[in-house]
């Protein structure tokens, strides 16, 4: 494998890791506040659909993005209502949201566009354009550093840079602000937060809403950045890979970046080399697809550093009377 191929694979890694990173950070906010979310997939799917649809109709990618965030927030609201207000089972609510999105996107897509659930292909204004960083052209001929700067770092679209910026932003919000401290406390010991006179419900709703916005960005990037339009079931398990990355990252923002890049890299390598010949054995493409899930199970099993979820995760908070 030569240097140019490596750059291409890494470039593709960055792009494929972006939706994972958004969704993973989304799950991080929700789960750190004690609300399990296996509905990341559904929220991304709903957002991808509506952003694709709105971008196709208006020809404006930004309107599409905001519509996608709106769709995702609506799903998040259902999840919040079920798991915070009505103290329902958060896992079951997540399952319901995944199916709701899977069904509604095709139902509405077929009704609006008649393309079997797809949205019309997006033309230039409806997609996120690559942003060429300054001096990218001039740097290109420089050996090694040139391709790294002009191809790997420059030339991605807005959501990619936003996703990377979200990592330090999340770390700062969680570990350096009062809101972040309260959010983490709500996920570990909600009764203590309640005793301190802070509303557990409000913090959890805020976390679920942030989760909705980030999933919306993930979905919008899928439909208007990675692809040119929405396709039926286009998230294809990415929400669950993000969930896997979240566990892999042990619910920490910087680790999340690493985990998402790893899983993005696996996907990029799998796309480029369907079957990997290791000399003794040939790794089939299906193995590469299953690898993120296998790694997550191994991590969950605690053989390679135990992943301990937030202590109050999954428990509805019942105020003492």
């Amino acid at each position: 494998m030569d240097f140019a191929t490596l750059i291409q694979i890494l470039d593709s890694t960055v792009r494929l890791a972006t939706p994972l990173l958004f969704a993973c950070l989304a799950g991080l906010f929700s789960e750190r506040a004690g609300v399990f979310d296996i509905g990341l997939e559904g929220k991304m799917l709903a957002a991808a659909f509506l952003s694709g649809a709105v971008a196709a109709v208006t020809g404006n990618v930004w309107l599409g993005m905001f519509a996608g965030i709106g769709a995702s927030l609506l799903m998040a609201a259902i999840h919040g209502l079920a798991s915070i207000t009505f103290r329902g089972n958060q896992l079951i609510s997540g399952v319901a949201i995944n199916f709701l999105a899977a069904g509604l996107t095709v139902l509405l897509g077929q009704n609006w566009f008649g393309l079997g659930g797809r949205t019309p292909a997006l033309t230039s204004g409806g997609r996120f354009e690559p942003i060429i960083l300054p001096f990218a052209e001039a740097m290109a001929p420089v050996p090694v550093l040139g391709p790294i700067y002009s191809e790997l770092i420059s030339g991605h679209s807005f959501p990619v840079y936003l996703a990377w910026a979200m990592v330090p932003a999340t770390a700062w919000l969680l570990y350096r602000t009062r809101f972040g401290l309260r959010l983490r406390a709500v996920g570990e010991n909600p009764a203590a937060v309640d005793t301190a006179g802070v509303s557990v419900t409000a913090i959890r709703y805020a976390a679920v809403a942030i989760c909705g916005v980030l999933c919306g960005l993930a979905g919008a990037y899928l439909a208007t950045g990675l692809a040119a339009g929405f396709g039926k079931d286009m998230t294809a398990g990415r929400g669950f890979i993000a969930l896997a990355a979240l566990i892999f990252a042990k619910w920490r923002p910087w680790y999340a970046l690493g985990a998402c890049l790893l899983f993005g890299f696996l996907e990029a390598v799998g796309n480029r080399f369907p079957n990997i010949d290791l000399g003794l054995i040939v790794l089939p493409a299906q193995f590469m697809q299953a690898l993120p899930y296998i790694l997550t199970v191994v991590i969950l099993a605690g053989f390679v550093g135990k992943a301990i979820p937030p202590r109050a995760g999954g428990e509805p908070y019942v105020k003492e009377r």
Binding site: I78, L81, A82, F86, R87, G88, Q90, I92, A96
Partner: peptide
């Protein structure tokens, strides 16, 4: 699933 499961309450 939503109404019989998550929104049961």
């Amino acid at each position: 699933i939503l109404f019989t499961g998550a929104l049961d309450n």
